[in-house]
């Protein structure tokens, strides 16, 4: 019924000047605001030819920056998976006082600016901070090194998996788990055979978002990294650095790597969304 209505509406609007104007505006906005800058990244990256392009990418500092970003993502993703699953499971399957507050707290990194997370981190772990001096006395350094970059990236990306899982788990309710338990399944078996398979696509989707975000993170990492070349520079910091060094082609070359990662993530995300809609009726 509704399909037929929309068909007729669509037919009526075909060729309508308003429709054409809307489509043109939409396409223009996408072209101007997204495709053009995206295209520019690759255009400028390859301005000096392929040899120069790969030369920039294979420079030791740049290779290291790619490695560090992947390391940060590599730590953040499993941590986010475990954390997101535990938190979403506990908050979806049980009710207890303070539940809403806890949800807001977990989602806090989404709503506050990353730079505040960075500065807050220094407030705790910096040498002028709360724990920093004590840690320093014991020979542990938690600021301006790889550790701080990895932890801050993990904090910033921590809500993504949780956020994808929670609404789904809430919607699914606890009937299937109750059925499993009543049929004699233990807690772990229930989790791995019932709960986890039910949310696998949402989990995967959350992970792709986490991955994209951890590679793209700039503000918080800029605060805690110390920008040591070949040591604590992530991909985004390396782009910023090269850009300000006036080696702009190199900056664009590195940016094209980040863009490519993002595009691949986007493809995976689209594919997952399709799987998700196929799996859940």
């Amino acid at each position: 019924m509704s399909a037929r209505v929309s068909e007729t509406t669509r037919a009526g609007l075909r060729g309508h000047p308003g429709r054409i104007a809307l489509v043109l505006t939409g396409a223009g906005a996408v072209g101007l605001l997204i495709s053009l800058p995206l295209g520019a990244v690759f255009y400028y990256a390859l301005r000096e030819g392929w040899a120069a392009y790969f030369g920039y990418l294979l420079a030791p500092d740049t290779r290291h920056a790619i490695g560090l970003s992947l390391l940060a993502a590599g730590v953040a993703l499993p941590v986010n998976t475990v954390f997101g699953l535990c938190a979403a499971w506990a908050l979806a399957k049980f009710t207890f006082p303070g539940r809403r507050l806890l949800i807001s707290l977990i989602e806090l990194p989404l709503s506050i600016s990353p730079i505040i997370i960075g500065v807050g981190y220094l407030f705790v772990f910096g040498l002028q901070g709360v724990l920093g001096p004590w840690l320093d006395d014991h020979g542990i350094s938690m600021a301006f090194n790889v550790t701080s970059v990895v932890i801050v990236t993990t904090i910033v990306t921590s809500p993504y998996v949780f956020r994808e899982l929670l609404p789904l788990m809430l919607a699914q309710g606890t009937q299937e788990e109750q059925a499993a338990v009543s049929l004699g399944a233990g807690a772990w078996k229930t989790f791995f055979r019932v709960t986890l398979p039910n949310v696998k696509w949402a989990l995967f989707y959350g992970l792709t978002l986490s991955f994209a975000r951890s590679l793209g993170e700039f503000g918080s990492v800029a605060v805690v990294s110390g920008a040591v070349r070949g040591e604590t520079n992530t991909l985004t910091l390396q782009i910023d650095l090269l850009y300000h060094d006036q080696v702009q082609t190199a900056a664009f070359a590195v940016a094209s790597v980040l863009t490519s990662f993002a595009l691949v993530t986007l493809l995976i995300k689209t594919w997952v969304e399709r799987r998700e809609s196929v799996d859940s009726p």
């Binding site: 220094l122 901070g129 301006f144 040591v228």
Partner: peptide, 16 residues
Amino acid sequence: SHGGSSRQARAILEGL
């Protein structure tokens, strides 16, 4: 490590 020198000084105070 390169950055605005005031920022660098701040970072050293904080543990760089």
